[in-house]
Design a binder for these strands. Structure first.
Lengths: 212, 212
DNA sequence: GGACACATGTAACGGGTTACATGATTTC
DNA sequence: GAAATCATGTAACCCGTTACATGTGTCC
């Protein structure tokens, strides 16, 4: 086999999926990722210059080089083989989702630092969530004004955006709550009122009461 | 300098943080990670055999080897220098949180696959969230029964667990909603009722109405 | 015509993963 | 005493990162 049989990564498929929508230059791919994939499949942009090459190696995409001044811009497009591979991938089970939060790691060991450190960590965490919400809100407004670039994809995008939105909502609300809690602590050391704390967990795991 | 000046990763600090609680063998570290860190700093367990060695190299931890039959078990403990480094780390801003979800990538390109593929992806996503909730619920019950191993950490753990819980709640609820939506579609192709779809986004970004 | 953002990459390193291996302990 | 599971690692590969480099349009 002359085709490279290297196993494709999720990043490979993500790009293949974008190419299935239409051909893109690498820079356009990067821009597009910032709008969507970045929120649930974050990768450094420099990656996007390496990955399509592997797709071409495997015969899943084709590259065409166009001159732009002295430089060349590479535009990639999907091949029929690429479409097949993408389709087969969609039918296989996805890997488990994972959350990575250095902020939560810091929270977890906050008793070894100062109360202000912890409050700072929470504040930043909350601000990040708010920033994301602004970004998403801006995108939503595009849809409301009918200015979204791929109206034929609106049904799918709405699914994804809803999860992202509720995610940021959860995070922002948590940050606010946690800040309030910590402000009530004299320091980050041992807890005062175990009963109240455990009651929080109890309340959480109870099924929600129906509204009166 | 004979000390390795390699920059520590978040994983390094996570382990350093655990060692600040008490000394652990590598296996115990792995077990402990499964209970906590794993939910917001997921790493392969084999990693946990390499990382403490780097801490020892940097003088932040000490290893003591104890015989267990023919083999040796290595127990690690933090040094005063390690505590200092941990404390300084806590005062620095945390990297942004990131969500990685192959399932959402598949959702994003679901129009290139079948409706059943999409429903499968959503079902698995929901099941995973439910599994996590069960795990968390089991941990909460330990707290309610007063059987949590580190009661002096309850205040911090409650903060973290609450976010994790609400996270899984968001995910489970979304999966249920999305499944309902998709079931109403004839296929994964272009959308029928753009207005209804866009209305979802509009409703989301409105501030919540106060309860009557 | 200088500054500055946009566009387009390459090089090198290393943390993290997967795969493998094998000793101890419990179960039945 | 076989099987399964718990415990304890090692080895090798590679995706992803950070850092660097330089061309191109545009604003003023």
């Amino acid at each position: 086999m002359s085709r490279s049989d290297r196993k494709l990564t999720t990043t490979s498929y993500a790009i293949l999926g974008l190419l299935a929508v239409r051909p893109w230059s690498t820079y356009e791919l990067a821009t597009q990722m910032r709008r969507n994939l970045h929120y649930f499949w974050p990768r450094a942009e420099s990656n996007l210059y390496a990955e399509p090459k592997r797709l071409v190696e495997g015969g899943l995409a084709e590259a065409s080089s166009q001159p732009v001044g002295k430089r060349r811009r590479t535009v990639y497009s999907i091949t029929p083989g690429g479409r097949q591979v993408l389709e087969r991938w969609l039918s296989r089970p996805a890997a488990a989702s994972r959350l990575e939060s250095e902020a939560l790691v810091k929270v977890m060991f906050a008793n070894h630092g100062s109360k202000d450190d912890l409050l700072d960590t929470l504040r930043r965490f909350g601000e990040e969530a708010e920033t994301r919400r602004e970004e998403l809100r801006a995108i939503f407004h595009e849809y409301l004004r009918g200015e979204d670039p791929f109206p034929e994809r609106v049904h799918i995008n709405v699914l994804a955006y809803r999860l992202l939105w509720e995610h940021t909502q959860t995070e922002a609300a948590w940050a606010a709550w946690a800040t309030g809690e910590v402000e009530g602590w004299p320091n980050t050391d041992a807890p005062q009122k175990r009963e109240e704390l455990v009651a929080v967990l109890e309340a959480l795991s109870q099924p929600a009461r129906p509204a009166p």
